[in-house]
Design a protein around this nucleic acid. Structure first.
Length: 498
RNA sequence: GGGGGUGUAGCUCAGUGGUAGAGCAUCUGCCUUUUAAGCAGGUGGUCGAAGGUUCAAUCCCUUCCACCCUCACCA
């Protein structure tokens, strides 16, 4: 332990030791506070008039010593408040001990409230306690912490230094709570289904694989909750939902983190039209409860979140935004069309993939105001029921806002024989090299064979909704601990080589 | 995976082929309503890592690592 500490760290250690020498426990057990900082500021008039003693606790985030007085700011979970200590009030010994505190330390103070000449609500300290000594310096007070790598890796510093970050995650919590309340109020039951699955499904994506030693069994981390939730619909749970982490072993960018939060819900005896009404009602209720507004400005687009949202069929959207009726076109013509529009068609095989390419490149980016794109070609929707009016289509919608997908829903396929055919078609795509096509899930088909009521189901990427409602352009800014590569592969990983 | 960028003090950032600077933080002194407190004086750096070129590298070259942006693939 002969490692040399820089002065900045050495001094903190020395102050710690001095406090210990004075008989102070630098890491005590509890502190009874009477107020949060925000409560004192809100209730200033009463508190200052009555002259009552308040107790607050928090981290020292700034410090201004003036000889025989000190001004500092304490930050707690509700905000920050200024505190003021005078040597005359506390006496030499206490004042000197207070001087061993510094930015980063967590302390409790008690005192009366007043306003400084500059008008700031301040606590005049009559007593204090050290609650945790900080041995590392805080990021700089004025510029904050900008380095994204440190912000993501050591989110606690980000939270201390950048107050907006806390706001984002408070909003995130509100959004999820509101979705829960909305569904609970309508009789949906929250359930938990396996995150580790023998067979994955419910979306087109490459899964993570893990291994269960006890059974010597490879398991997949779920890519979607869908197939389990539908088993519950078979079992008579008529309205179910789950908010959970899903895992997809694919690329990462500002819209994608390998683990992300998904809301899925399933509603027996309803179809996709009922579902769209419910979805727009839910989104609207979340937006207005979180924002106090039904409009959002994002990427310089003014978006009205007020229902009803636009509804346009896949075919009409193609006519409108691509200028071609794609209804009857086969794979070849679709790929030609894509090329003609300047799209990269490398690796695109199958009619479904061609349609998907055209839609995601030429249609979806145009859907800025909330819009349901409906009636998808059957090739794109292996779990959706065939359209009641057109066997080439499915009763499926995706919701787009600002050109991004905000969920996917459909009248659920309940015919076990049809489901088998769809799986088999997916299996063929798989053989053709589509790694993301569904594997055949016999166990799920077995469930359907017992009879599943008509139902509609919806899945929503929660992180993206949080991005939209907090104005963040990267998913990493709405996930507390986004995936990062190890910082120093040689340092942390390699231990004693024994 | 391709392309571009970044990495220098705890934080925010300058900078140069001759082993380095500012502001904040920190330390010492003065200061009893300050608030980006002030004034004066200090401390603090294997300049991301490893090689190479050179009398000499933080700077030039090579490789590697991490992060950001972007394209591709996807959700």
């Amino acid at each position: 332990m002969e490692r040399e500490l820089s002065e900045i760290l050495r001094v903190r250690r020395e102050k710690l030791q001095k406090l210990i020498d004075k008989g102070i426990n630098p890491f005590p057990y509890r502190y009874s506070r009477t107020h949060l900082s925000s409560e004192i500021i809100a209730d200033f008039e009463n508190l200052s008039e009555s002259g009552q003693t308040v107790k607050v606790a928090g981290r020292i985030i700034s410090w201004r010593g003036h000889g025989k007085t000190v001004f500092a700011h304490l930050q707690d979970g509700s905000g920050k408040i200024q505190v003021y200590i005078r040597k005359d009030d506390l006496g030499e010994e206490q004042f000197e001990m207070f001087g061993l505190f510094e930015t980063g330390d967590i302390i409790g103070v008690e005192g009366t409230v007043f306003r400084t000449r500059m008008g700031e609500v301040t606590i005049k300290i009559s007593g204090f306690a050290l609650l945790a000594k900080s041995l590392k310096p805080l990021p700089e007070k004025w510029h904050g912490l900008k380095d994204k790598e440190i912000r993501y890796r050591r989110r606690y510093l980000d939270l201390i230094a950048n107050p907006d970050v806390l706001d984002t995650f408070i909003t995130r919590a509100k959004i999820i709570k509101k979705m829960r309340d909305f569904l609970d109020d309508r009789g949906f039951l929250e359930v938990e289904t396996p995150a580790m699955q023998v067979l994955y499904g419910g979306a087109n994506a490459r899964p993570f694989v893990t291994h269960l030693k006890a059974l010597d069994l490879d398991l997949y981390l779920r890519i979607a909750d869908e197939l389990y939730l539908k088993r519950l619909i078979v079992g008579g749970m008529e309205k179910v939902y789950e908010i959970s982490k899903d895992f997809r072993n694919e690329g990462m960018d500002r819209n994608h983190n390998p683990e992300f939060t998904m809301l899925e819900f399933y509603w027996a005896y309803a179809d996709y039209r009922d579902l769209m009404n419910l979805v727009e009602e839910m989104i609207f209720s979340v937006v207005t409860s979180v924002l106090d507004s039904d409009e959002i400005t994002y990427d310089d687009n003014l978006i009205s979140m007020k229902p009803p949202y636009g509804r346009i069929t896949f075919a009409d959207a193609a006519r409108k935004y691509i200028g071609t009726d794609i209804t009857g076109l086969g794979e070849k013509k679709l790929i030609d069309l894509a090329r003609e529009k300047g799209l990269d068609t490398d690796g695109v095989t199958g009619r479904g993939a061609a349609l998907d390419l055209l839609s995601s490149e030429l249609v979806e980016p145009k859907l800025v105001q909330p819009t349901f794109l409906i009636d998808y070609p059957i090739e794109l929707s292996p779990l959706a029921k065939i359209h009641r009016e057109d066997p080439g289509l499915t009763e499926r919608f995706e919701l787009f806002i600002n050109g991004l997908e905000f969920g996917n829903g459909f009248s659920e396929l309940t015919d076990p024989d049809d489901q088998r055919r769809r799986f088999e078609s997916q299996a063929r795509s798989r053989l053709m090299g589509d790694e993301e096509a569904h594997p055949i899930d016999e166990d799920f088909i077995l469930a359907l064979e017992h009879g599943m009521p008509p139902a509609a189901g919806y899945g929503l990427g929660v992180d993206r909704l949080v991005m939209l409602l907090t104005g963040n352009s990267s998913i990493r800014d709405v996930i507390l601990f986004p995936i990062m590569k190890p910082e120093n592969p040689g340092k942390g990983a390699e231990s004693s080589d024994g």
